[in-house]
Amino acid sequence: MRSKFLKRVRALDVHLVLVYLFLYGPIVMLIVLSFNELGLPTAWGGFSLKWYGELARNTALLNAGINSLIVAGGSTLVSAVIGTLLAIGLERAVRSTLLDAFVFVPMIIPDIVLAIALLSFYSLLKMRLGLYSIMLSHIVFNIAFVAAIVRTRLSYFDPSLEEASMDLGATQIKTFLKITLPLILPGIMAGALLAFTISFDEFVIAFFTAGPGQPTLPIQIYSMVRFGVTPDVNALSTIILFISITSILVAQRLSGMRGVL
């Protein structure tokens, strides 16, 4: 019995290792390359931080990075507020499953469809494109992500907590600020972090709704790639990767929903 059990575990272990290799091999390669003196994928010239230095001097890339931070930060802030209120409304007031489903559509429909729709919509309104138009577009899908995560948090929320607060003399607004908000805050933070991560490296929608001369980071990297990857992109990717992984881990911990994110 015992040896049979061990055999099964070993087979699964091998499987696990292969899957992780498949998933993370190329990414590990990228990280290693970012520290390669030669900057080539074909030869190792020794460990170096040269390309991180190069990156610091690449103003086009840095500006694009700042643009991405503005878009991601702005859209996250706005969607955190709207998404939270939406989640509360859906959880407490709305009884229509159809309406419920439609809230999450922007999360699911292909980016390209949303991108085309937004672009046509903006041109219909004769809106000038710029960072704010990307931000607006990102708010569209980020609201859905924030609302989805806050809702799972709310579904564990005992409504009698709010009733107890009102029973003890707190008005509805005070109850929201002193009881509801602190208790769903981890969910809001998790939703916001996820929104930020998605927005920061979003390409398709940003590409369609960006104005001239103000590229976000993914757009800038894309345009650089067409003329051949410079090794400082590896350095930048490594930095972004670590920021993304950290915020996903924090979001996961905050929302207490391992396996969902």
């Binding site: 005992d158 107890a164 607060s165 029973d167």
Partner: peptide, 10 residues
């Protein structure tokens, strides 16, 4: 004042 079945402690 009310005491709730779930206690509803904050």
């Amino acid at each position: 004042n009310m005491m709730f079945q779930s206690y509803a402690l904050f």
